[in-house]
Design a protein around this nucleic acid. Structure first.
Lengths: 158, 158
DNA sequence: CTAACTGCAAACCTTTTGCATTGAC
DNA sequence: GTCAATGCAAAAGGTTTGCAGTTAG
């Protein structure tokens, strides 16, 4: 769901365009992030990367994620901490979307739309604050968990 | 700024109403959270609490914050991690507001308004997801930092 | 009185850092 | 060839937990 390929360049091409030195490790991490079916946290990236490169080090993963974040090529998410204190990452999407995290089953929905996009302009017009990064996460109950059994599978506080 | 007193009961009264055992430590922590002028993180709560109760323990602070969070009496914020990985807390406000975190100076604005409140209904109507906790944080540049000197005081990635 | 809470200390988990070596451009 | 990135290991930072003693209701 998070992998609607950007029309433009790949993450690696954009890294190169930003003047970042392309190492095999970075290329691998970029590819993993782009092809991920779910949101990955640092440890997931590390374990996936090790399938291809046995020697890759955790520190390299962290450093690469930090670089990508600094270049605004990926966004960092907390997903309401339903899964502990990990941070998750996604390739920065072209249109703003929000994350609906079900506190019962842990599923994450990502509705898109003009409505969310309009928030940035509204904030700027009303406060003079120029938003660059938007993180909108809602915790609650997805329709399945609400209509189905009341007993939640995996209730989390926040 | 975050202390517009709720019309209803105090945080401690609401804890009691929820069946939580009121200890001096919990009463103290609740009072600190309610009277805080800024957003507090766990360590700030701990240090403030120690001014009154020398013997209070960090673990008690963490456990009380977790309890309040579970009861939905306080909300947890990350404030875009401009200050590291700490979590900040605020007494759950009656009206939804958003947090605008300046990546240059670290200031936090909290505009309120119907617009943000309307997001919950919109999400529910369009997706069937019932939002309980909303966390909307934007990172960017506040008007001062944009109009003033271009060199930021304290630039942070995200 | 008793279940729930506290203080304590140790563990835990994720992330960061200094340094010598390796490698991209 | 040179500067930047990697692997390594150690430390940092923030949070959690098991346990024995204490206390609110």
């Amino acid at each position: 769901m998070i992998t609607q390929k950007e029309p433009g360049e790949s993450l690696m091409e954009r890294m190169r365009a930003q003047g970042v030195r392309i190492t095999p490790q970075r290329a691998l991490i970029a590819e993993l992030l782009e092809n991920a079916r779910d949101h990955l946290d640092a440890d997931s990236v590390y374990r996936l990367a090790r399938r291809t490169d046995r020697g890759i080090h955790r520190a390299t993963v962290y450093r690469t994620l930090a670089t990508l974040k600094r270049l605004r090529l990926i966004d960092e998410l907390d997903l309401m901490h339903v899964e502990g204190e990990r941070h998750f990452y996604e390739v920065r999407p072209s249109t703003l979307h929000i994350h609906l995290v079900c506190l019962s089953c842990g599923s994450v929905q990502e509705p898109e739309g003009r409505f969310w996009e309009s928030m940035k302009g509204k904030v700027f017009r009303e406060t003079g604050f120029k938003p660059e990064i938007v993180r909108l996460e809602m915790g609650g109950r997805c329709s399945k968990c609400r209509t189905g059994k009341k007993k939640a599978t995996k209730v989390r506080g926040n």
